[in-house]
Design a binder for these strands. Structure first.
Lengths: 212, 212
DNA sequence: CGTGCGATGTATCGGTTCGATACATCGCGG
DNA sequence: CCGCGATGTATCGAACCGATACATCGCACG
């Protein structure tokens, strides 16, 4: 999952680890707590070994400008390679069942702007099916095994069930929106010529606020 | 986390691995997908090595009844020890910040019936603080960095923010309920004599939310 | 003027958990 | 009689987390 997220982010800009972590944490803040360095750095090295990204010691570029004295230490900037972009596309194309669990879905969703509409629909529907299954499981427990469980456990299930129902509704809106939708941002790797300036998918409209 | 859950469950009944997994999956269905054997069995061995649980080959007990022929193979039944119960209590007593993240909180909440009121309040409030922080983070992103992010990412944040708000409300109800509450089920390890049949805390009679 | 502290930055280690997989037994229906 | 799904135990590699270590930069406060 981290692999996917890193590849996605580096397509927007080259970064070093620290920055990557911050951006990742911001982008995925709704999904997961924070990326730990213990997973970030090993993953970076893995990606580099595979050739998806390149490491480049930061050199001040314009030559003498900044002489050397107190030379910029460390600071490794990572750049995505052409193969890396392919890899990203391939990961989207595969998008198996892991894509439908909480984290997997969240991460993919966060990069929907780089995905074509068909894939978006596929993922949204897969996720919906998954959540519906979970929902049925919870209903079962709440129905059948109700008296076997203590009040707190039951409350937890109710809470979870409610969340499932909510998410299904959310997904359904997104799906409907997507179907009726003007297709946004088909990324197109490679050169990316003139057209394609507009970068805004149809915002699912809708809004929060309901019952007290 | 698994350690805690296993210790908690085994206090209700002795079980073997398979059963443990099923019960765990049912009890924590709202929180996490399913316990994998890849974590369950190693953890069981770890707990056993520490002396918190005991392994006993299932022998048909009442002697000759079932002779031997096609002897019950495998089927290892795990039982919690006195030290195990202490360990469980100790884990509750510590209940640091890990207890406030999604999984940690969920697992502890699922065993609230074995916890005293003060601890319940402590955990609920810690969780609330944690979620409020996350909520503020999301509001920040939605406010400040809004135009830097694409529509899908924003929608994800909105969804997450909504979930946070919902959970805070839920927690507040639980806390209020707890404060005003008749204290339910103080577990009391050891012999567990006559009274204490009733195992039902005040049901907060409300529900919602979780996270994508 | 210095000194300490918080943000920036890279990196590793140990431990937990997951996902896939292997294998063996039981009871059932075809 | 055979297969197949539920029961049951078990291991392996890879992913990820949490804590930690260390070094530099810039700024505020004494």
């Amino acid at each position: 999952m981290l692999e996917f997220a890193i590849l996605g982010l580096l397509q927007e800009a080259a970064m070093h680890g620290y920055e990557l972590r911050k951006e990742l944490t911001a982008k995925l803040g709704a999904i997961r707590a924070a990326i730990s360095y213990g997973s970030l750095y090993p993953t970076l090295r893995r990606l580099q070994a595979a050739g998806w990204i390149t490491e480049a010691d930061e050199t001040p570029a314009t030559a003498e400008e900044v002489p050397a004295l107190t030379s910029r230490r460390g600071r490794v900037v990572y750049t995505i390679t052409a193969e890396g972009k392919e890899r990203f596309a391939q990961l989207i194309a595969q998008a198996g069942p892991e894509t439908y669990d909480d984290t997997g879905f969240g991460v993919h969703f966060a990069f929907f702007a780089r995905t074509d509409q068909a894939t978006r629909l596929r993922i949204l529907e897969g996720r919906r099916r998954k959540i519906e299954e979970r929902r049925e499981g919870l209903r079962d427990v709440l129905g059948r095994a109700a008296e076997r469980l203590d009040a707190y456990t039951l409350e937890l299930q109710r809470h979870g069930l409610d969340a499932c129902e909510r998410e299904v509704r959310w997904l359904e809106e997104l799906i409907a929106n997507e179907r009726s939708g003007r297709a946004p941002t088909v990324p197109q790797p490679g050169t990316a010529g003139g057209r394609g300036e507009n970068d805004s998918p149809p915002p699912p409209g809708e809004s929060r606020k309901e019952r007290p």
